[in-house]
Design a protein around this nucleic acid. Structure first.
Lengths: 207, 207
DNA sequence: CAAGTAAACGGAACGCGCTCCGCTTAGGGG
DNA sequence: CCCCTAAGCGGAGCGCGTTCCGTTTACTTG
């Protein structure tokens, strides 16, 4: 039931035992095969067995490497999201540092919405029902937003509001807004901006 | 793949063909058996086959009545949520009408949080990944919140903010806040209140 | 009350995610 | 260079949600 630490593609820091050569080779094979299959058919039409077969690997191997379907999806997502994360921390403004927090909040929403828009299906799979939890990039996003909010909206519980804002951007939620409600991306975009602006609007009297 | 209209426990309005006696009896049996099993073991330990067996019914019947596992969970939820819904529309203030919108917004959050707290597991099952959509009580909640927001926070897209607020109360999200993040119910509660208050705080200059 | 028919029934069967376990092999120590 | 062992491997197997389809049955019509 997936409780082992789950080997990550981490560097050998002397602490972790070192990843065996065949293991590394298989991880690559799997990632490669999965990427190709997903690009071709969309993740909802690719089963774990499909990936295993295409990678010439047993299903056991697949699960040992990635834990479960969500973990594999997360790994496929990794390259795409890493780029965005780097831009947040050290990229050019307004996404990166160098402008007022309120502006960066808007930029975060717009940038992330683009990401979600492109990768919804993968994101949905990477985030199964009872497990918005660990692993993914959400903790980073949450911290990032909380930090910005402390500056832009010091009058509220910034961690809570960070989570609330993030909740709206969750893939399932976005899917609902876009497909279920039929909202345009522009509406969501400007809704986000209005919302963060109205939270930022000058600190008012403490309650 | 569940596209038929899905028979609801609706009254015979002359338009719908009339539900056959055996069908009605089986619906009751299933609901009864499911309620009991879920109370006894928690929904995560009750399979569809378990329910079918306990209700002395084929699995086919189960699926014809309720569409899928989520539909069954929704039906089990129905009685609990109906009460809350009635209170929203016609109950005593501050949940029902009769006080300022800002106050009712707070009351909604607190009341709904209690509901979620009691019924998370069921709610999670009732809301599978790609389907925050139709059926459940969410549309009602969304409309309700949007209405209140139009009064309390006229300066933003009230439908959008309604969805955003609702997103934070979604079962999976709540589970994450409570268990993943370890937040107390009180923190979530007061986070909600702060948030809606800070949205309500006097209309400010239109942007 | 008999016959016709659409609806409902039940459970075998399917697909898929995930686990388990006996076998194989990489890689370090002697 | 060989041996030993822990890590890795593969795929049969399991549980469960869901579907399919041949059979049964409640209601209607005459």
């Amino acid at each position: 039931m997936m409780e082992a630490v789950l080997e990550l593609p981490q560097f050998d820091d002397g602490q972790t035992p070192h990843e065996r050569a065949d293991a590394a080779r298989n991880r690559l094979r799997i990632l490669e095969a999965a990427t190709e299959l997903v690009e071709a058919h969309g993740i909802e039409h690719v089963s774990m067995d499909d990936v295993a077969r295409a990678a010439c690997v047993g299903t056991g191997t697949l699960y040992r490497r990635f834990g479960d379907r969500a973990g594999l999806a997360l790994a496929l997502l990794d390259q795409h999201t890493r780029e965005f994360q780097d831009a947040l921390i050290a990229g050019p403004p307004p996404l990166g540092p160098g402008v007022p927090a309120a502006e960066r909040l808007r930029a975060f929403g717009e940038g992330y919405l683009d990401l979600v828009e492109r990768l919804v299906e993968l994101l949905v799979v990477a985030e199964p029902p009872g497990r918005v939890v660990d692993g993914g990039p959400y903790p980073l996003y949450a911290t990032h937003l909380a930090l910005l909010l402390r500056e832009a909206a010091p009058h509220v519980d910034s961690e809570f509001v960070a989570q609330a804002l993030l909740a709206m951007l969750r893939p399932a939620q976005h899917l609902y807004a876009r497909r279920g409600l039929g909202w345009s991306l522009e509406r969501v975009r400007s809704g986000w901006c209005d919302l963060v602006d109205s939270l930022s609007d000058g600190p008012r009297a403490a309650r």
